[in-house]
Write a protein that binds this DNA or RNA. Structure first.
Lengths: 147, 147
DNA sequence: ACAGAAATGTAGCCGTGTCTACATTGAATG
DNA sequence: CATTCAATGTAGACACGGCTACATTTCTGT
């Protein structure tokens, strides 16, 4: 069944690869969203409480607790019982990377005529699938358009 | 952010709303990917076999079987045991919508300078979060750029 | 026609992310 | 200081999407 088949075997292989990469990106999305959110809360309020995280993410507090547990497991955050949540160096680095990428994505969407409100909403899902190469292309295009 | 220490209720509410919408979009992504893939296979081979679906998606065959079961549950596909999988009218409509959107996203990425290979990979994840409003903006921008 | 290979089905496990319900702790107020 | 209430922790259920292992059916080649 290898050589006879009707059509383009190599294109099919790359399809599986693309889907696989999309699944990987998706598994990182939750970590990215939470680190950025926690970083935002710390900047604004000085600390990130579970209740605030949950409200901001639109989930219940046990869900936020589980997410923070995963962040700790992955070395992105630290937390002591009944205290706020804080980010490690790795977590802060991720938050900054995510924030930058989010802004670039929103800017690009707006630049091609997407209404700002829709840009914000869609960017929340899109950003997690923007690779470094694509991000650089976005930045280059935006700066060239501005300049 | 604001000078008042705590409340910034409206911004926070919209954040939760954005994340919620991103989660909803993600839950539809699997259905969209499978319907498009099945439609592709039917066009190319005349039918969509579980084995082909699984190989194309980069998953094992029981995973593909489960996905098809969900498609049937959602009224997007029909299948009889040991036979190929077929799409309902709703499934075909979804496949066409997804295919169009995929093309537009890839075209837009390429148009702003993303290398075609990266555009294909990233589009696989991005497309599921492109709303109708954003899609229309993409199309308008592309046609204006071409014309 | 039949035996072996390939495809498909089925069972069951695991990790994730969501929820509800209840227990416990911490903080604020009388 | 005690009481109460908000915040947090914990337990357990569910759906999903991935996997492996094994059973069954269909297809294929001689």
């Amino acid at each position: 069944m290898s050589d006879i088949p009707i059509d383009a075997p190599e294109l099919e292989d790359t399809a599986a690869e693309r889907f696989s990469q999309a699944r990987t990106a998706q598994s990182l999305a939750l970590l990215e969203d939470y680190t950025e959110m926690i970083d935002d809360l710390i900047r604004e309020l000085g600390e990130a409480r579970i209740t605030d995280i949950a409200r901001q993410m639109g989930v219940t507090h046990p869900t936020a607790t589980k997410a923070v547990a995963r962040l700790k497991r992955e070395g992105l955050a630290s937390a002591r019982p009944y205290r706020g949540v804080f980010l490690t160096e790795a977590g802060i680095a991720m938050a900054e990377r995510v924030r930058l990428r989010h802004r670039v994505v929103v800017d690009l969407l707006c630049a091609v005529g997407v209404p700002p409100e829709a840009a914000e909403i869609d960017a929340e899902g899109i950003e997690h699938h923007v690779s470094d190469v694509t991000l650089q292309a976005f930045e280059a295009w935006l700066s060239q358009k501005a300049g």
